[in-house]
Design a binder for these strands. Sequence first.
DNA 1: GCCGAATGCCCAA
DNA 2: TGGGCCTTCGGCG
Length: 280
Amino acid sequence: MPEGHTIHRLALDHTRDLAGERLAVTSPQGRAADVAARVTDRRLLRVEAWGKHLFYVFQGGTRVHVHLGLFGRFRRFRSPAPPPRPTVRLRLEGARVTVDLVGATVSEAMSAAGQRRFLERLGPDLLRDDARPERAWERLRSRRTGIGRALLDQSVLAGVGNVYRAEALFVNGVHPELSARDLTRAQFDALWDTLVRMLRQGVKDRRIRTVDGAHGPGERTWVYKQPRCLRCRSHVRRWDLGGRWAYACETCQPPPAASSGPARATNSSWARKNSSDRSK
DNA sequence: GCCGAATGCCCAA
DNA sequence: TGGGCCTTCGGCG
């Protein structure tokens, strides 16, 4: 379930559960045996999150960089934990809590300098207090793709995945195929604002829910994986956009060819209350 | 038991 | 642009 909110939630949880302790780190599966050997019995200082990436910072400066990819997951146990499944890539065992990592795309050791170099490739992380929208705006304007593709480009913005992309574009009435360069600054600011609020809510809830509780249990999103738009009940279009499913209600988000201007009503309280700058 | 899907992303052509 | 990576889970028989 890894979009940025999951990663930040894990950083908070793992800092609370494991930081300050010397951890027994093992790789039952064997594939990260070298990583485990470098940090086992060292003190974990903190866990940092940037976009969809985690960095476990150990005393002495070594980091363990984890990227969950599509399949990666952590499982949490009270120590002592049961024997690990054979697929467990890394087990971090503290006095109170043990966590198992499985299926991750990346689990590697790196230095502080390595982490810094790595992060240069990523755009600002919407969930960090020091995030600078200006940087994302500049990078966005250099993209020749549609806004839908650009939002998933982690070198533009870090932390947005397929669900939040669909939902944030929907509530702002923006079609995924609108050219990124045609997005107005006001539209960009509104999207940024929506994404920050959705992601923060996701960290709190430990799940993605962009529609309030007035709707049914299967209705936690406006358009993502919905057959019909929860706002206007029109058919939700689903299509392949660069290898990922895109979802849009083309009534609430008119395709760029059909709407020459950015004038659109906003679709829910996730969008900015102030829409005067988008009226023309 | 097998198949497909999943909130990601890299790399070869 | 298409396939591969990697794991779990639910649906289907």
